[in-house]
């Protein structure tokens, strides 16, 4: 029997490189348990302004204001926050044809065994219901899917999601 080691950690520099490559100007976010190391790196990055919020539904509206004002924001929240943000995603992102990329912590998701966390079980269904396409990233090798998501969002002028399927490592 062989044991295959699966690298299930995303390192913040890989994400940061994608954001900088795409000239992202702002990250509008609410911290979650998986993204502390990402936060630490974002606070030291001079080219990207971090906009912390009190509740996730604020993020899409702040991003809409930044976008109409000529900037290029992304949103970084947990899947639990998407459930809270429904009216903002509908009334802004979808209704105004906003090319909004949402990086979403995929809390509870796993390739191994049962996915018992309802936050994980419902999120893809919710995105399907809204017609929002999404990409899954699980390791540094997947990070370039952020570029795909950004390209797609600006091409189709709609929100696109990136589900972050593993924790950020140090």
């Amino acid at each position: 029997m062989t044991t295959e080691h699966y690298e299930s950690v995303i390192h913040p520099p890989a994400i940061m490189a994608e954001l900088k490559k795409n000239k992202v100007t702002h990250v509008v976010w609410l911290p979650d348990s998986e993204t502390n190391f990402m936060y630490q790196l974002l606070t030291t990055e001079p080219t990207i302004d971090l906009v912390p919020v009190c509740r996730e539904g604020e993020t899409m509206a702040i991003a809409a204001g930044l976008w109409v004002g000529g900037k290029k924001p992304v949103v970084l929240i947990q899947n639990t926050g998407i459930f809270e943000s429904g009216d903002s995603i509908r009334g802004l992102g979808l209704d105004i044809n906003q090319p909004l990329v949402m990086l979403i912590g995929y809390r509870g998701w796993t390739r191994h065994g049962l996915t018992s966390d309802s936050a994980a079980r419902f999120i893809e269904h919710i995105l399907h219901a809204w017609g929002i396409n999404y990409y899954l990233i699980e390791s540094d090798d997947d990070a370039n899917r952020i570029s795909l998501a950004i390209d797609e969002a600006y091409r189709i002028q709609k929100p696109v999601a990136v589900l972050v399927g593993t924790e950020f490592g140090a």
């Binding site: 906009v51 539904g57 509206a61 702040i62 204001g65 000529g70 924001p73």
Partner: peptide, 13 residues
């Protein structure tokens, strides 16, 4: 969310 929208616009401009 009007105030949130205004915040984004204020930061951008």
């Amino acid at each position: 969310k009007a105030s949130s929208l205004a915040l984004g616009l204020a930061l951008a401009q």
